[in-house]
Amino acid sequence: MNTTDQLRELLMPVLGITSIDEIKPESALVRDLGAESIDFVEILYLIETEMGVKIKIQEIAMTEYSSDGNNLQDGKITNEIAERLNKDFNTDRFTEGTTVKELFESFTVKDLATIIDKKRDS
């Protein structure tokens, strides 16, 4: 089973979702699946105990990309950061002008799987 499918199974009870089909790889944890900050404690704990990978909440909030003041213009990410995000997460959905809040809210199941796979490989 690949990491994304493992995650979809793991997220079902945490988010109170009964059908795995409702959790798609491209579903955003906060915006689509209704995850709240308190759920992330459980999600991170389950990933650590069941998948053996330690992830920090900051990684899900993507502060690495937004914490440096130079990466932001009026609280929005620059084109350079959007390109880096698209490359790192193998997508094209990030664009210049996305706010830090939107980054967190649009974080998908697949993005989380990407972080887990990267950590496993390193």
């Binding site: 404690v41 991170l44 704990y45 650590e48 920090k56 909440i57």
Partner: peptide, 10 residues
């Protein structure tokens, strides 16, 4: 069992 002062604890 686990204690991450910036995040959570078990």
């Amino acid at each position: 069992k686990l204690f991450y002062p910036d995040e959570y604890a078990v």
